[in-house]
Amino acid sequence: MNQQSDDDLLEASRRGDMNAFRILVDRNESKVAGIIKPMLGDTPEAVDIGQEVFIRFYESLDKFKGESSLSTYLIRIAINLSLNELKKRKRRNSFFSPEEAGMHVNADNEQTDWKDVLHHELNNLEAEFKSVVTLRMIEGYSTEETATLLNIPLGTVLSRLSRAQKKLKTMLANYL
């Protein structure tokens, strides 16, 4: 069954074949995780949101007509759910300190790898920057693909990338 096309597996999933659906999940897990984990961090919430993406997809199997590729469809759900989760976190963090909200990384420790600091600083970026950084800088989508996935103009992607890049460089001034 692993050799079957996505279309065949989709059709089988619509008929209630959970094995076919499981294969679709396996095929797309890494793409979805590649979006959610950089945006939400390596946290249990990230896994929950990952599950939520595929549950939403399962619920809308009949609505998916294949206008875009399956991975594009899933990535869009992943981005939307991640942005919602970031909004919730922002509200939560306005009541709790970052340490209480579980976002503390010991950035002052001299032994800390600067790449860890980089990923920590990524958490401090605003949601609008995080999504472009994740798609373009981490996952390596082209600027055009990033614009399509986020449904924003190419110029906006370029300007957000530039601003995010400068912010990261300023945050990491002591490590570069």
Binding site: D26, E29, A33, Q51, L118, I138
Partner: peptide, 15 residues
């Protein structure tokens, strides 16, 4: 440094 070097995953037996 940001560019992903290995595939992301949600852990074992996610599906």
């Amino acid at each position: 440094s940001l560019k992903r070097k290995s595939p992301a995953s949600f852990g074992y037996h996610f599906a």
